[in-house]
Amino acid sequence: MNARDDMLAGIRKALGRDGSADAATRATLQARLKGHKQNLVPKRGRVQGREKIEAFVKMAEFSLATLARVRSAGDVPGAVADYLKSQNLPPKLRMAPDQKLDAYPWASKPLLQIARGKAEPEDEVGLTGAFAGIAETGTLMLLSGPASPSTLNFLPETHVVVVRAEEILGSYEDGWAKLRQIADKLPRTVNFITGPSRSGDIEQTLQLGAHGPRRLHIVLVDDGADAGTER
């Protein structure tokens, strides 16, 4: 018997069956797979409105990400330039080829050198948007694709992410639900990112910047309205 049949037969025997489950059981299991039923979502993942935005900010900072809030889209390039300066980084970045990012007025900061595309080994700063922010743990949810190369999330030493308040969701489950609205299949990769890369492998002392970015900086576009709902 080939390994596949052998393993499946072994499982069925262990479970006290000769073959696969009966049709009714299979139908129930199929329905469970397609039902996307949520299990218990903690209360902190079910908050709404301003509370949700503030929870995201608090938890992102708890994860040792840094965060700057700007009132409007027009302030984004300035906030990025200011951040790079504050970290003594050159005003040079690799940006995801994302229309959402293109919409910010980068020309207002002519000193910023912006290249678009996937990350190259020598890139020091990667700039991406996010598919969503997850309030319950201050997590960013990013999807791989033409507009968001995954290498930007991992290769550069600094990862800057621009998130809009209306992109903040409560829970991971909210993220899956939103993803299913726009696509019937998953992209190659969904990255959940919670703070900058770290390791405690030498005597359990926490060090940031193990293999991924040393810094994770979030620029949150938040006009202060009672946001948090899709607009």
Partner: peptide, 24 residues
Amino acid sequence: ATGQEFSVYTTVSTGPRRRADPDG
């Protein structure tokens, strides 16, 4: 495991790079 709220990177991978993907 570590007492973190969430691990830094939780990565969900599905198949190889798609035709239009720039990396993977």
